[in-house]
Every structure is written in C-alpha cells, then in structure tokens.
Design a protein around this nucleic acid. Structure first.
Lengths: 149, 149
DNA sequence: TGCAAATATATGTACCTACATTTAATGTTG
DNA sequence: CAACATTAAATGTAGGTACATATATTTGCA
C-alpha cells in the first residue's frame, strides 16, 4: 500500500517530506510486526535485542555500558530492561569482581533456549524485507547511510 | 557514519539484516533530531504531529478517530495526547453536537501561532534528508513502499 | 595520601506506545 | 419500543524512551 493511503493524506510537499514520512512509518510498521513475533514468548523488542547481544557474548559477560553501545536506541534504559529479563530468569546480574562499579550480565540457559525457539520462527518470517531483492536492500542501506552522513 | 560503526557491530548476516537495522536506526535518528527542535517549544513529536493535523482541518474540527487515522502511529493514544495539548491551551475539546459520542477538537489561535514559529525553524532545518537528491528521496520512498506491499 | 574528576550503574519523572477494558451514545432489529 | 450490538472516546496497566540526577567505585594527580 502506498504511503499516501496508509496515512490518508493525498499529497506531500515534496519527495523529501514523502520519504521522511515513509521512512518513519515503515520502520514502525516493521517493528510492530517483529514485536508481534516475540509477544507470545513474553518478550518485548528491546528485551529480545538485549538477549541477542548477550548470546553474542556468551559465555563471556556483558556490562550495561556494552549493551547501550550496541543497542539501536542509545538513550533507552538498558538497566531497567535487564531488570525485566532478570525477573524472568533469562539473565543473571553480578557485580564485576575486577571493577565493582560495573555489573556482569550473562544470559542463562533458559534464555538461550528461549532464543533458540524464537530463531525458528524468525527463520521463517525473516526481517520483513523479503519483498526486496538483495540488491535493493543494499541500495536502501546506502541511501540510509547517506542521510546520516 | 556507516551503520556498522554506529552500533559497533562489524558484520551483518546479509544485506537484508543490514538494511533492516539501518532502517530502524535511521528512523530513530531522524525522530530524535526532530524532537530536539520541538522541545524548546514545549512540544513532543506526537503533540506536534497532532497540532499539524488540526491546522490542516482548521477552522473545521477533527475527532479523535480522524486523528488516529492520520497519525503515523495508529495505536498511539490520541486521546491522551490531546489532553496534554488542551492543558497547554493549544487545542479545545467540545462534545460534537450532531453526535454526542464524538468530540470536536480544534486548534486555538495560540496553537496556530506556535506552529507558525516552529515552521520557521523547520524551513531552515528541513526534514533531515538534505543529503539526498530529490531523485534519491523518491527512490527511497519507492523502496519503502515495496517493503510493505 | 587525600580529594576532585571520571566512570558505571541505578533511579526519578514526564511522556509515550500497545493493548484491554469501560462508559456513554447511537443504531438496529425482532 | 426494548434489548442488543456497534461506535467514539476515555481509562487502566505494563513496558519503553528521553533526560536529569543520585550513588558508589575507581582513577588521577597535586
């Protein structure tokens, strides 16, 4: 569906405004579809993303700082998202022995199992960009990089 | 800055994953820049967007339903965002005479003035897509439409 | 060594999203 | 026309974002 119809607006000022609105709208659209996938496993999107970073480190620990660095949303509150994961026993938190200001965060076996189950669904559904060819995806990525130059 | 460096991740599985992450990241990046513009005027991004829809209708009223239809984020809570705008006296809310379930929402003179002041800043800063040519913006929009087909 | 600056995380607050539920008014239909 | 369904908005709740501030630890250096 064209973006004009999605937001019931017939005309845009120019191609820039149209692209901007389309970009924000499509990102939200993709994230909502992703979220729906995790919901049945009791995870939110940021929780899932943090779990994946932790799996990437496993069995080494991560710190809150490292999570923030790698998150898409730098200003989000990693500390409180880790809280939720800890309550669900998907991660552990322990004061770092070599630097008692920092906290070692590790994914638990239960967390690894959960990710594995979600992987299966992800493999089927993909990122949501299946309608593009690989070349188009690369082209899209280049355009986005250029925006932020 | 390339997306790899932005999130300190050196490799992506494929172009699809890279484009997905880039898309979500760039949309967030743009929205953060936009938000910074409104903040000094005491508005959030959703508040600003609703004000603009109301200006488009002015002097006719809008209803909550109409706002939701036109918002980028359909599941957001227009009713409570209007609350905030009403407190700041940027909009008025009045039971619709012809359908007492609905509410007529109108932008006030004060709201129109505020938007006008922000327009000036917007005109200078643009949408944040200035690094693209008009052709690239159009091309971006087409790729995004294709994702959601 | 002692004390200020820097660092790592946690917490407080305002606002937001997502989604379920409630309340009130209006339509519909037997 | 009375009961029930539908519609429009508001409200409740859990979780997130953005940003300021607090607390504890470590570092640097006079």
């Amino acid at each position: 569906m064209k973006i004009e119809d999605e937001i019931k607006q017939s005309a845009f000022k120019d191609d820039y405004q149209k692209a901007y609105i389309n970009l924000v709208f499509t990102a939200g659209w993709l994230q909502l579809r992703q979220s729906a996938m995790f919901k049945e496993y009791g995870l939110t999107l940021p929780q899932f993303n943090i779990l994946r970073i932790l799996r990437g480190q496993h069995p080494k620990p991560a710190t809150v700082n490292m999570l923030i660095e790698r998150m898409l949303d730098k200003t989000s509150n990693a500390s409180r998202i880790v809280d939720k994961l800890e309550i669900k026993e998907l991660v552990t938190r322990k004061v770092c022995p070599s630097n008692r200001r920092a906290v070692d965060i590790r994914i638990t076996d239960s967390g690894l199992e959960l990710l594995q189950r979600i992987d299966a669904v992800m493999a089927v559904q993909g990122t949501g960009l299946q309608n593009l060819t690989a070349e188009e995806a690369a082209q899209l990525s280049d355009l986005l990089d250029k925006i932020r130059d």
